[in-house]
């Protein structure tokens, strides 16, 4: 069997940007159309399993380069079908779902925002505000690492808790400030206490500039204690309808 890699789906009449480079040996990215929907496809390396760094980067690059120009439903990596089954296995059975999703996401792009505390600033603030921290610091001082292990864990836990409390407030403030510039927001609680926010914003393509500007202003207002990282415009990874 010959395998075909599927990057995503676009409307059949969508204009694709030039210079797309896929993960297969040919590097080509083409489309297979059926009834108004087109699959973005390419060849698959035959001599090795998928999953290298370059494969991942190529998938993202194709999808997000297309997303910058037109609406695309991104496939989760990796999506492979038999070469002659793209229409029968993919486009025919899921046609209505694809059409609905493409219509729902028409003219919209995603931005992903991450924020992390400037650790020194936050830790300083917490040390000043939490008396228990100073007490523990006093007990730890001069004691060998092994002997102070539990005190250090306890101290760190107090700091982490205090940071999480601040984070809940700050994350909400950030999302609230940017929400008026987005159609939808999807945010999650990051794993580490000093990661403040992880949120995806679905933004109108023609409102992207405004959104970016607001993020820049937010960055300027908060740069003393917060580092922001903005990805986008991206395909609407976080907003693909479930079904």
């Amino acid at each position: 069997m010959t395998a075909t890699y599927v990057y995503g789906l676009v409307a059949a009449d969508a204009e694709l940007p030039d210079g797309l480079r896929g993960l297969g040996p040919s590097g080509e990215v083409t489309t297979v159309e059926h009834d108004g929907v087109a699959a973005l496809v390419g060849d698959v390396p035959a001599d090795r399993p998928l999953g290298t760094r370059d494969d991942l980067m190529a998938h993202e690059n194709v999808v997000d380069t297309v997303a910058a120009a037109t609406t695309v439903l991104p496939m989760r990596f990796p999506a492979v079908v038999e070469h002659d089954q793209v229409v029968e296995e993919l486009l025919v059975p899921h046609h209505d779902r694809f059409v609905r999703a493409l219509e729902a996401l028409e003219g919209l792009v995603q931005y992903s925002l991450k924020g992390r505390y400037v650790q020194e600033v936050l830790v300083q603030e917490i040390v000043e505000e939490e008396p228990a921290v100073a007490e523990l610091q006093e007990r730890i001082r001069g004691v060998p690492e092994d002997a102070s292990y539990y005190d250090r864990v306890k101290l760190g836990e107090i700091v982490a808790k205090a940071m999480e409390q601040r984070r809940d407030v700050d994350a909400r403030d950030i999302v609230e400030r940017l929400s008026p510039f987005a159609r939808q927001v999807s945010s999650s609680t990051p794993g580490q206490p000093d990661d403040v926010v992880e949120a995806a914003f679905l933004v109108a393509r023609d409102g992207a500039e405004e959104f970016e500007k607001e993020v820049e202003e937010l960055g300027a207002d908060t740069h003393e204690w917060l580092r922001l990282r903005l990805l986008g415009p991206l395909a609407p990874y976080d907003f693909v309808p479930e079904d």
């Binding site: 999808v63 997000d64 910058a68 300027a220 580092r227 990805l231 991206l234 990874y237």
Partner: peptide, 22 residues
């Protein structure tokens, strides 16, 4: 600017890409 930028077809790091596409 004060905001670190990435994404949009190629300038993302591997960690960003992994989170998005996997």
């Amino acid at each position: 600017g004060y905001v670190d930028r990435g994404g949009g077809g190629g300038s993302s790091g591997l960690a960003d890409v992994v989170e998005l596409i996997l």
